[in-house]
Design a protein around this nucleic acid. Structure first.
Length: 572
RNA sequence: GCGCCUGUAGCUCAGUUGGAUAGAGCAACAGCCUUCUAAGCUGUGGGCCGGGGGUUCGAGACCCUCCAGGCGCGCCA
């Protein structure tokens, strides 16, 4: 049992002994939620605000605090003190240290994890790249938020399904083929890969401005894809293959993987029955020549399902995909990690599913995130106003490499570590703020290695590892936890003890940045501790305790970094 | 026009679901390496928490309203 739960339970017990006949007292879990951390450590480690009981007990908060303090009988766990309407708890520092560190060590690298998700499945739709477009900074958030949430849910025992819902359908691929036939060559595309495809696409749009007939040709080529024309299909599949190969390089660097690449084209032959179902259920109505689901009673514009020309639209595919995923994976939750521009779209899709009578529609969640701009301007592949992820990662790795050369010239695996640090910096920057915030990409921020950054946390981890290597040279006796009763150690222990709660909150809010913040706070607290205390000096039993604290910090940082998709080098 | 989101230090952001004196990092300046990794640590300055009302013992957080910005509002995805 962690300390917060224990305090809550003991306090709850004290309440019931003090006021046996009161019937509106909170339970253990409620009390746990009400416990808070005082703004200043001098005021205690946990605090219970008695204001909330004032009405029910018809007593002033300070009186309640006094009475609770009198009924508190667990001095060996914590000492209590009344300050106004607050009952403040001062943990028995040595036993708090012992219990916290033993919990971390007993978890064997899984501290903070759990099995509450056992038997439950979470589908995550993330990254979802477009065919024939290069991977750029606009794709980073969906990729890393999705990847991180997947690891977080895995860590809590859920079965997860990572889905890359490829953008591999639509008129643009007809245009692509048209451009290729007109100006491209096999050799050129073979050599240039996705960049060459992108260049062809840009050229198409430029030329189409003066020659509108190109648009028709593009549409004609798309029609040929739809009809299964061999040449069109071959080219289309080739483009897709090239794109996936290109993306695989980036995914490898980021450590990201998927269970399914079922994108839009996967659903083209599965939409018909869904459309029929919508018709049968009387949900489809004709409007302005198209077929829509009316959502006016939900205060939303109608959801377009079939266009005037009889073809389907992305909402149709998303509705079909959701049903397919439920039938295939029987998900308990399906997360869509997609930018907030799509907010209305998903609200419409989920509402249509609900109207179709699917009770699991409420388990579909749009995990939205903010826009990325570059130097204050909207990203635009066509205008060239973007940064390719390749270039960004390479730049970051090179910078890491040169810093290593300067600070750790004797490091054995420099390239490997440079890769870990460079990528860590980029990923950390992406996952450091609440996901709803817009990001204006800047090179200096993305490549910053000082302060609250990926390298800072990694550095702290490496520092712990270094110290533990040194500590291993000496045989240490059983730890004397009374060596960890100082303020710095206690502040650190408190952060460690809260980590499991943070993991759960991050999962409940779909918010990886909470983990980023937690590991940063722990790293800061450790670095402070490190400068205030000599770890490998003094009594051996005291050293053992300080080493155990260091090992716990290393474990929790490594776990936290893993959960946000960042590697933790042991030396740097 | 309607809907959703955002507004906290010069900049980027936290703020434990309504609690005690609003916190970090970056940038600036001043210190700390013969001692376990200085990618670190310490200190200084910097705030009508967008404005105004309201609810409450208590509001950065909740309600109303206004202001500013972003996004969206059928045949692209």
């Amino acid at each position: 049992m962690d300390m917060r739960t224990r305090i809550a339970s003991l306090l709850c017990g004290a309440m019931h002994t003090q006021w046996p006949e009161a019937d509106s007292l909170p339970g253990d879990a409620d009390v746990r939620g009400m416990l808070e951390v005082p703004p200043d450590e001098k005021m205690g480690d946990y605090a219970f605000p008695c204001f909330r009981l004032a009405k029910a007990l018809r007593m002033g908060p300070p009186v309640i605090a006094q009475k609770l303090a009198a009924a508190w009988g667990a001095e060996e766990t914590a000492r209590v003190e009344c300050v106004g309407g607050y009952l403040n708890f001062f943990l028995n520092r040595a036993s708090f240290a012992r219990e916290t560190l033993q919990a971390v060590s007993a978890a064997g690298g899984r501290y903070g994890g759990g099995d509450e998700g056992k038997g439950k499945t979470v589908c995550l739709d993330y990254s979802s790249i477009n065919i024939a477009k290069r991977f750029h900074i606009g794709h980073l958030s969906t990729t890393m938020i999705g990847h991180s949430l997947r690891r977080i849910y895995d860590f809590l025992g859920y079965t997860t399904v990572g889905i890359n819902h490829l953008g591999d359908w639509g008129t643009q691929f007809g245009k692509m083929i048209c451009a290729y036939k007109k100006w491209g060559s096999r050799d050129e595309v073979e050599e240039g890969g996705v960049s060459a495809l992108e260049a062809l696409y840009v050229r198409f749009h430029k030329e189409a401005e003066n020659d509108p007939s190109l648009e028709d040709e593009g549409r004609a080529w798309f029609k040929r894809i739809e009809e299964g024309d061999q040449e069109a299909l071959e080219l289309f599949n080739w483009f897709k293959e090239l794109t996936l190969k290109d993306a695989a390089r980036v995914y490898d660097l980021l450590g990201v993987s998927f269970d399914s690449y079922a994108g839009e084209s996967f659903y083209i032959d599965k939409m018909e029955p869904v459309i029929q179902e919508l018709r049968d259920k009387g949900l489809l109505v004709q409007s302005e020549g198209a077929w829509v689901v009316d959502l006016s009673e939900d205060n939303m514009p109608p959801c377009l399902v079939i266009k005037k020309d009889g073809t389907t639209i992305y909402a149709t595919r998303d509705i079909t995909a959701a049903i397919y995923r439920q039938n295939t994976y029987h998900f308990d939750k399906c997360l869509y990690v997609v930018a907030y521009q799509q907010d209305l779209h998903f609200r419409q899709v989920f509402r249509v599913l609900e109207k179709m009578g699917y009770p699991w529609a409420k388990d579909c969640v749009h995990v939205s995130f903010g826009m990325i701009s570059f130097e204050g301007q909207a990203l635009s592949t066509r205008k060239g106003n973007t940064v390719h992820l390749d270039d960004l990662l390479q730049e970051a790795v090179e910078k890491a490499r040169s810093i290593i050369e300067e600070k750790s010239p004797n490091l054995p695996n420099k390239d490997e570590v440079a890769r870990q640090i460079g990528i860590g910096a980029v990923v950390y920057a992406d996952l450091s703020n609440n996901r709803i915030k817009d990001i204006d990409f800047s090179w200096s921020r993305a490549l910053n290695f000082d302060g609250e950054t990926g390298p800072y946390v990694q550095y702290t981890h490496a520092r712990c590892c270094s110290l533990l290597r040194k500590a291993a040279e000496t045989q240490l006796p059983e730890a004397d936890y009374s060596a960890l009763t100082d303020d710095e150690a206690q502040a650190l222990l408190l952060l460690i003890s809260r980590f499991p709660d943070t993991v759960r909150e991050a999962a409940a809010k779909y918010e990886p940045s909470m983990i980023t913040r937690a590991v940063t706070d722990i790293a800061q607290a450790y670095n402070k501790y490190y400068y205030e205390h000599r770890i490998l000096e003094g009594e051996l039993a005291a050293q053992a305790a300080k080493v155990a604290l260091t090992a716990a910090v290393r474990d929790v940082i490594r776990t936290g970094l893993w959960l946000i998709g960042i590697e933790a080098p042991e030396r740097m």
